[in-house]
Design a protein around this nucleic acid. Structure first.
Lengths: 362, 362
DNA sequence: GTGAAAGCGCTAACAG
DNA sequence: CTGTTAGCGCTTTCAC
């Protein structure tokens, strides 16, 4: 039971112990005011141990003593030095989150979920944008070994995670969205294969026979799974998938989607519908289509993936596969916390439900 | 105040000296492998001081010795414990970034800028979403006093910053986008007054006389400044601003913009153009307008603010005032680093240029 | 060039 | 209930 005792002392900076500017010049004057627990102890006429007990909300302190300590604390404006605490307790109380691109609304929302449960449990979040680069990924991951973070959540491509898995035996980390069950770390995600199938079947039901796929990089397991879902759905409908209908992009940016759509739609035998594996891509697709005079959904139907809040706002509103982004993040954080609390416990992989949201674009 | 409970209790009893695997089972065996610098020292047959020197790249180590140490290091897979290092050097090497909402693409891009220069200088970023709540803000800010972060960048409303300024004398922080020159902390932003004027004058030049303003919360200095810019531009054009043309929202979400637009446009004497102080709002506005059968820009012109990447993708493409988001973040980080390096130096406030980007919506 | 030793500020036994 | 004490793992004088 920790009690951070923020105890917002609304007192003015209490005259900062004579101290004055005896600084040997140039030096960053540090810890000017009521530093150390020792100062508080002295002022309250107790031992450091007692102050520590009060600070940490231990029960075994006589109320009178506690009050004296508390008084000394907010008379001096003391704040615990968590650097010291962290060394002593051997934990940083930081959770590392590695995402390929936190500018993407999809990841942003997941990060929010992570952050909220982390905070709820007294952890802060170290957010690292890896750009899906294995090198950066590795170097961030090293923060765990250096004890700068107590645990990590990785949203990077499965291919990168595999390398991690090898190199980093039993470090406390979990996978979110991307995961390879074979790596053996706890994970949370959705059933991408089925989700993609659902999207394609919706298009099929609308009468489309030529359906394009604008996919992201195959480094992502989800990209491979969704592609397989797409392929199988087509095949099951008696359609022979044409390789020219498929594109792989190494970016989820709007622009990437837009130019891919232009390319795709201008070739002979172009599809009458496009399934993009991300809403950002899909929004770009719609833009690209419009730029070459195609109307959505009349000329070309479009379905996206994720259901970011923007999806409902654009014209036409985007039909898409909703992922429970917030819950994905929250679950990942919980899994990690669980693993931290009990390193040997068997933490499971969990799959969350998706759902097709039909709007105007398809 | 808040007290974060639950700290995973069980702690390994320092097996210390005797070392070996005297683990009382069940316990999270930590630092199993080549922990401590001492182990490396021993293995290399040198003192801990020497290992430390090697680790920190000090010059005064004989090459042969250095090599021996290096060998011992990567034989044992040793990693420095930065918790210990941090305590000893009294710095966390973390920069705190407080944003009202990192889900907003505008803030996301700024955060990117901060992150990139922070990283470049060996700092990591602690990202905190305050939701523009003064309480959360204050409690995050306290991380500075607790030495969990070496410095902070605040993007929260100026009104909140003022409270901070009072309470937190000479703590190392800087303001970004939002700032009150009177608070006396370094800041970076743009000239919101002129920027808003530019937007309105563009609308005026297009022949609009009734121009609505969809603004955010007046806690934000930028909101007040943009409103003044709007008002003055109108007045200078000989137009008497009508209070019914103005709305203040406490959210920048798409939905907020959409419903505000609906309200605004359905009243008698509704404006023929709308200036929204954020692109996300503007995108919502366009959506809202469309939902009640208004065409943009034919029936109502719309101009936004920020120029997030999405602005060019929607239909119609958004006319907006571009802010140099990335540079804003980079500059803020540099200002902070500067202040950290030399606490007594006078760090300036800086204003970056904005620019009107004319696209299809107005 | 290298080692010995003194803490950084805190927590947690262990006594009393 | 409270105090004494021993470090957490590292950096850094200060000697040799």
């Amino acid at each position: 039971m920790r009690d951070h005792l923020s105890r917002s002392s609304s007192k003015a900076p209490a005259a900062a112990l004579s101290n004055a500017r005896s600084q040997p010049e140039g030096r960053p004057l540090r810890a000017a005011e009521g530093s150390s627990i020792a100062a508080v102890a002295q002022q309250a006429g107790v031992s450091v141990a007692t102050v520590s007990r009060v600070l940490n909300g231990h029960e075994n302190v006589r109320p009178a003593t506690r009050d004296r300590v508390l008084a000394a604390i907010d008379a001096s404006g003391y704040r615990v030095n968590e650097l010291a605490r962290n060394l002593r307790t051997a934990e940083s109380r930081l959770l590392l989150t590695m995402v390929p691109d936190f500018g993407n609304p999809f990841y942003a929302e997941i990060v929010r979920g992570i952050d909220s449960v982390a905070r709820q449990h007294g952890y802060f979040m170290l957010l690292c944008d890896t750009g899906a680069d294995p090198g950066r990924e590795r170097s961030y991951f090293d923060l765990l070994r250096r004890r700068r973070a107590d645990g990590a959540i990785c949203l990077d491509p499965a291919t990168i995670q595999q390398a991690l898995g090898d190199a980093s035996g039993a470090l406390p980390w979990v996978a979110c969205c991307e995961f390879d069950p074979a790596v053996g770390v706890p994970y949370v995600g959705i059933d991408n294969y089925r989700a993609a199938g659902d999207a394609v079947r919706h298009l099929l039901a609308r009468g489309h026979r030529c359906i394009g796929l604008i996919n992201s990089d195959v480094d992502y397991l989800y990209a491979r799974q969704r592609q397989q879902g797409y392929l199988d759905a087509l095949t099951e409908a008696g359609i022979m998938p044409d390789a020219r209908w498929r594109m792989n992009l190494n970016s989820l940016d709007y622009e990437a989607g837009a130019s891919a759509a232009v390319t795709l739609i201008q070739q002979p035998g172009a599809p009458s519908a496009i399934f993009a594996v991300s809403d950002t891509l899909a929004i770009g697709v719609i833009h690209g289509l419009r730029s070459v005079g195609k109307r959505v959904p009349d000329d070309v139907a479009v379905v996206g993936f994720d259901d970011i809040s923007l999806a409902a706002q654009i014209d036409p509103p985007l039909t898409t596969v909703a992922q429970p982004m917030r819950e994905l993040g929250e679950t990942a954080a919980r899994l990690l916390l669980q693993r931290l609390a009990n390193p040997l416990a068997n933490v499971p992989g969990v799959l969350l439900p998706h759902r097709l949201v039909i709007r105007g674009s398809a």
